[in-house]
Amino acid sequence: MFRLLHRRSERRRRGAALVEAAIALPIFFLTILAIVEFGRAMMVGQLVTNAAREGARQGILYGSADAEVRDRVATFLQNAADIEPEHVDVQIDVAPGPDREDAAPEGVVDAQSGDRVTVRVTVPWDQASWGVLRWLGGESFQGEATMRHE
């Protein structure tokens, strides 16, 4: 009698594992994709900050020009994160240093020793994402670095 009851319950649960897997696996894979996407977001955010530092380092060198700073930032991001240069927005501000007595500098070319060079880099998330999940769509990564001119 026990065997008869055991066989009936086996027949009713025959597809239960398949149904449970059909429900659990998509949730599991979606979680894995989310971890990968947010990991990429953290990496790109750090790379944008590093690109701003590279641009500021270029900008504080004597004889540098704004175009050289923009090229340095774009090249860094293209090599490090495979972000095309046309999607990178670079803003360069030069503030007069405490010892400067004449007019404020117009760009990196006019900077003198002690002037502060600030480089801001912005990259849209849509251009930096690997996956198809667009959770951060419309957002942008921003990095900023300020250094004193040599």
Rank of each mutant, 00 (worst) to 15 (best):
residue 2 F to E: 09
residue 4 L to M: 10
residue 5 L to F: 14
residue 6 H to F: 09
residue 6 H to C: 03
residue 8 R to P: 00
residue 11 R to N: 03
residue 11 R to M: 01
residue 13 R to G: 11
residue 14 R to D: 04
residue 14 R to I: 03
residue 16 A to G: 06
residue 17 A to Y: 06
residue 19 V to F: 09
residue 19 V to N: 05
residue 22 A to E: 05
residue 23 I to G: 04
residue 23 I to A: 07
residue 24 A to L: 15
residue 25 L to E: 02
residue 25 L to N: 02
residue 27 I to H: 12
residue 29 F to T: 12
residue 31 T to K: 09
residue 32 I to Y: 06
residue 33 L to R: 10
residue 39 G to S: 12
residue 41 A to E: 06
residue 43 M to G: 07
residue 43 M to I: 06
residue 44 V to K: 11
residue 44 V to Q: 10
residue 45 G to C: 03
residue 45 G to R: 03
residue 48 V to H: 02
residue 49 T to S: 05
residue 49 T to A: 11
residue 51 A to Y: 06
residue 53 R to A: 02
residue 54 E to N: 02
residue 55 G to S: 07
residue 56 A to T: 05
residue 59 G to T: 02
residue 60 I to R: 15
residue 62 Y to G: 06
residue 63 G to C: 02
residue 63 G to N: 10
residue 64 S to N: 07
residue 64 S to C: 05
residue 65 A to S: 14
residue 66 D to Y: 08
residue 67 A to H: 00
residue 68 E to W: 07
residue 68 E to G: 11
residue 68 E to R: 11
residue 71 D to N: 13
residue 71 D to M: 06
residue 72 R to T: 01
residue 72 R to A: 06
residue 74 A to I: 01
residue 75 T to V: 00
residue 76 F to H: 13
residue 77 L to V: 00
residue 79 N to V: 00
residue 81 A to T: 02
residue 84 E to W: 03
residue 84 E to M: 02
residue 85 P to K: 12
residue 86 E to L: 12
residue 88 V to D: 10
residue 88 V to I: 14
residue 89 D to Y: 10
residue 90 V to P: 03
residue 91 Q to F: 10
residue 92 I to A: 06
residue 94 V to S: 05
residue 95 A to T: 14
residue 95 A to M: 13
residue 97 G to Y: 14
residue 98 P to H: 11
residue 99 D to P: 03
residue 101 E to H: 13
residue 101 E to A: 06
residue 102 D to V: 08
residue 106 E to T: 08
residue 106 E to K: 14
residue 108 V to R: 13
residue 110 D to N: 12
residue 112 Q to A: 08
residue 113 S to H: 13
residue 113 S to A: 11
residue 113 S to I: 09
residue 113 S to L: 13
residue 113 S to R: 15
residue 114 G to I: 08
residue 116 R to W: 04
residue 120 R to S: 08
residue 121 V to C: 00
residue 122 T to G: 04
residue 122 T to M: 08
residue 123 V to W: 08
residue 123 V to K: 02
residue 124 P to H: 12
residue 127 Q to I: 00
residue 128 A to Q: 03
residue 128 A to W: 03
residue 128 A to K: 05
residue 129 S to G: 09
residue 130 W to M: 09
residue 130 W to V: 02
residue 131 G to P: 10
residue 133 L to S: 09
residue 133 L to R: 11
residue 134 R to S: 14
residue 138 G to K: 13
residue 139 E to L: 15
residue 139 E to S: 15
residue 140 S to H: 14
residue 141 F to S: 00
residue 141 F to N: 01
residue 141 F to I: 00
residue 142 Q to H: 07
residue 145 A to V: 07
residue 146 T to F: 10
residue 148 R to Y: 05
residue 150 E to K: 01
residue 150 E to H: 04
residue 150 E to Y: 08
